[in-house]
């Protein structure tokens, strides 16, 4: 991760650390900066959103909005560590979207109990389907429980950060984490022998 002066003449794709490269691009050429930023981090942003909102079209759409906001704020980014900033923006975008949906009265979580039973008690499972089943089990968690579990397990956020994001106490986050693990332990027991 060293910045070698001799590498800089090779252009932007040298061994400069990613963030410094993006920062210098931002000063030199906004458009090139945006393209580099987008192409480096769009998958990360998109996947972070997708884990919370398991619909790729919506995830891509919201990821686009994250980058639109970045572009509109491009003159205020000179102190930013982009990867963390984008990751946070992605999580916020997804959580806002879930909140808005909830206020409108519909979320993908509101499956009927019958559907849930079918999914969680389906009999034999092939190894290939394991990951799918784990995803489904996580998706079946109660809404807040699911959000907290995903933020902790996959978005590498501390309980304190999660508590701040969701405006909950750390205690609640800890309780919900254990609730999530207990529920998953039951619905995934066939994989936990």
């Amino acid at each position: 991760m060293n910045v070698h002066a001799e590498n800089q003449h090779k252009g932007y794709f040298c061994t400069m650390p990613e963030n410094a490269r993006l920062q210098s691009l931002l000063q030199e050429d906004e458009r090139q900066f945006m393209e580099a930023l987008f192409k480096t981090y769009f998958p990360l942003v998109c996947k972070s959103i997708y884990r919370l909102i398991p619909d790729m079209a919506t995830a891509e759409d919201l990821a686009q909005e994250v980058f639109i906001k970045i572009w509109n704020r491009r003159d205020q980014l000179n102190e930013v560590y982009f990867k963390a900033y984008l990751h946070r923006a992605a999580v916020n975008m997804a959580l806002d979207h879930i909140d808005k949906n909830k206020r409108r009265g519909g979320t993908h979580q509101e499956l009927s109990p019958a559907v849930e039973d079918l999914r969680t008690t389906a009999p034999t499972v092939h190894v290939k389907e394991t990951k799918q089943r784990i995803r489904e089990a996580v998706d079946q968690l109660p809404e807040k429980c699911r959000e907290i579990f995903i933020l902790s397990r996959f978005e590498e956020m501390s309980y304190k950060e999660i508590a701040q994001h969701l405006q909950l106490s750390v205690k609640t986050v800890e309780n919900q984490m254990i609730t999530a693990l207990k529920k998953l332990r039951v619905s995934l027991k066939e994989f936990l022998e």
Binding site: F42, K47, A63, Q64, K131, F191
Partner: peptide, 18 residues
């Protein structure tokens, strides 16, 4: 176990999105 849940998630088409 949960770690593997999204290890094979769909890749967004970066070029198309760009």
């Amino acid at each position: 176990l949960a770690a593997g849940a999204w290890s094979e998630m769909p890749e967004p088409d970066v070029e198309r999105n760009w």
